[in-house]
Design a protein around this nucleic acid. Structure first.
Lengths: 154, 154
DNA sequence: CGAAATATGTCAACATGGCTGACATAAATG
DNA sequence: CATTTATGTCAGCCATGTTGACATATTTCG
């Protein structure tokens, strides 16, 4: 198992490092990336849901979210049924960036899966799902699968 | 691929979260964990090698390493052939902690792999190796495999 | 041998992105 | 109308990353 522990470390390190240079040109960091990614993937996401995905505090989120909104990557709209809510949407500009960031990571994943044969994707997926806390697994999968707005086909 | 991006995020989040509570009781953070882990796995590691594994600066390393040394989890010994070197070793106390931290993560991994069938370990391993930068892959595998001192059997 | 390269340590200052606690506002709900 | 809910915000702290400059001991090389 020790090999998996270390490989997970190395793999994740390189994986999240992909977007760094692009992010830097916008003055953004990894925190911005995570927010933008999940907003782009889940149009109309509520702030509370985003907090729950990221498991950070309101204040930590506010810092990066404000920048994304101010610079026109994310847009907030009043909830249709509940006007207290600020539903979050990626703007076209935001979606373009999210797509660009994801593209590099996708390339890396595709390359890795290519070495695994036809069942690779399903296998990798099952492994990763199994690594998630049993409790939060359904919730995580909800965000992973039940996506109505993949960036690029809004 | 989007599902893998997100699952990797969730899986890694939970995976690295396992040791947090134990670390907190020692006043340590994740940075200490990483250092202790690689030292325990590679007895006699040179500082330069550790810097290369972690990809952090000398100053960042110094901060956490000093604490680990001061509190008796890691020990520095002069290199036998090159006396400029400070080879790093986990003390018995350090190895015990490393083992304890790894045990939780190992349990999680074992559980995830159990759902994959007999080839699970090899498959997960190949996937993760494929995710590592092609350039640094050999070097990473060097540390993953060529381990002379698994904590617990020193 | 003496100069240069190497391995490591250290100081000061700064950035990012977590955190807590307290408090504010508007809207929904009972 | 009182309470709860969704969100925002202020102030400050902490962990861990960064840069740049410089110090020390030791090895290596011309």
């Amino acid at each position: 198992m020790w090999d998996i522990i270390e490989l997970l470390y190395f793999a994740y390190r390189d994986f999240v490092g992909d977007p760094d240079s692009v992010l830097a040109t916008f003055g953004f960091g990894r925190a911005h990336h995570r927010v933008l990614h999940f907003v782009a993937r889940n149009p109309g996401l509520k702030v509370a849901e985003l907090l729950d995905i990221l498991r950070i505090t309101k204040q930590s989120l506010a810092r990066v979210l404000k920048q994304l909104v101010d610079e026109g990557f994310v847009e907030q709209r009043e909830g249709e049924t509940d006007r207290r809510q600020r539903r979050l949407f990626a703007t076209p500009k935001g979606e373009a960036l999210a797509l660009r960031l994801a593209t590099q990571q996708t390339r890396r994943i595709r390359r890795a899966l290519a070495e695994l044969g036809p069942e690779g994707h399903a296998q990798a997926r099952r492994f990763l799902v199994g690594m998630i806390n049993a409790g939060g697994r359904d919730e995580a999968l909800h965000f992973v699968d039940q996506t109505t707005g993949v960036p690029g086909r809004r």
